[in-house]
Amino acid sequence: MSQQKTWEKRQEQTQQKKTAQVAEATKQDEHLTDEEKQMKMVELIETQRELMRSQGRTPPVITLPLLDHMIPYSVGFRARKEYPSVLDAFRQFSRNRTNDGKNAFSMRHIAVADSFPGIEVDPKLGWFRAMWLYARRVFQTHSIKPDAWIAPMRQEILDQYILLNETIMNGNTKRVEELTMAPYTQEATALADRKTGILYRWAFHREVTSLRILSLRAADGEFGKHMPKSGSRVAIQALVRFDTEQSIEMYDKDGNALHAPAPSAAPPPTKRGKALHIVPAVPKRVTEYLVVDRAFYDPDGKWKFRARYTPEPGRTPAV
């Protein structure tokens, strides 16, 4: 019984000591500015991350919250009937311009951090040349030109989109989780987790209209004293419109096609044997608005799909 009381007393003394230390630290922090408090918190997080690295553990990657993306809508003469009043149209026009401004700011932030995939921005440019370069380039978020800063990024995102759809159709839920982030993971894994005994084959045919980045947001997500191995502290999110032509083939366990064949599909042979006879399906147009996310301070980071956006009924997207 005496040992129990001794243990309880030690626990109480330890708790009192911790409480006193917290109170002292809080008292010291009262004289700090908000910026100094934030820097102190960053230093604490980085110290913990360094401790994990020294122990042979991989520290978790800092993830940005889902940022303020939006689909811009047309407010021109042809779209005048989509707005109840001129004031509503003006408000949408203002939201579009605000989005353009945030896109341009993010473009500049990415360029200064030299984080555009496949693009090198010379950091030694003189102020006049740099100003002229940024003035021409940062407002090209929606550009589909092959020489735009975002051109390699657009191709990377399209490749990931094709990979994601193939993975979903293959039913590989573990791989789907690696290619997505919450809240989109739940939707994607639900599509992949099929137990119907039906074989699915997905095919990408073409882009009906080129992939467009509608909303771009960039922020620093790594604040350590040392630059990350990837050489960039930037995390990027983008709301992207995919307007593609794709098809899905379905076969039962005997290899019989369960989908409508394309007009150009050859008739199935009378004797198939054990080999699956491929019957091309009718391509369909699919337009999706998805948010992609990538942390460039993660050496193994790839573009991941994070959320789905749906256009407002009765509104025409601007691009």
Rank of each mutant, 00 (worst) to 15 (best):
S210L: 11
I278H: 09
D252I: 09
T141I: 03
W202Y: 14
V176I: 10
I236Q: 11
K40M: 10
V112R: 11
T98L: 13
K229V: 12
Q21V: 13
M1A: 14
T26D: 06
S143I: 03
P146M: 08
S74Y: 06
Q11T: 06
F90W: 15
T58A: 05
I110D: 10
V42Y: 00
L199R: 15
V138S: 05
V291H: 00
Q16P: 07
M169A: 14
V121E: 12
A260G: 12
H259R: 05
G76W: 02
A238W: 06
A266H: 10
V286M: 02
Y73P: 05
I119R: 01
A148F: 05
Y289T: 09
R154Y: 13
P268T: 05
T287G: 02
T196S: 15
A190T: 10
R217W: 14
P268V: 06
D243I: 07
P268L: 05
E43W: 01
P317R: 10
Q16T: 12
T196D: 15
W303E: 14
I150N: 15
R212D: 03
I213G: 01
L51P: 03
K81M: 11
S85K: 07
D159I: 12
G224P: 06
S215I: 09
L67F: 07
Q246N: 11
R306C: 11
G126T: 02
Y309T: 08
E249P: 03
P65V: 07
H205V: 09
R108D: 09
Q155H: 13
F128R: 10
L44P: 02
K9S: 14
I110A: 11
I110K: 09
L158P: 06
M70Q: 14
K9R: 15
A20R: 13
E120L: 13
K9E: 15
Q21S: 10
K302H: 05
D34G: 04
G197R: 09
E120N: 13
Y251V: 12
V61R: 00
A238T: 02
E312G: 07
K5Q: 13
H205M: 08
A151H: 08
K9L: 15
Y161V: 14
K18D: 05
S232K: 03
G118E: 07
L239G: 04
I198Y: 07
Q16Y: 08
K124L: 12
Q55A: 04
V282Q: 04
L179S: 06
P268N: 11
T58N: 06
S54H: 05
P269N: 07
T173P: 03
P261S: 11
D29S: 15
E187Q: 15
E82I: 08
Q186Y: 11
R136S: 12
P152G: 05
I62G: 00
P183Q: 06
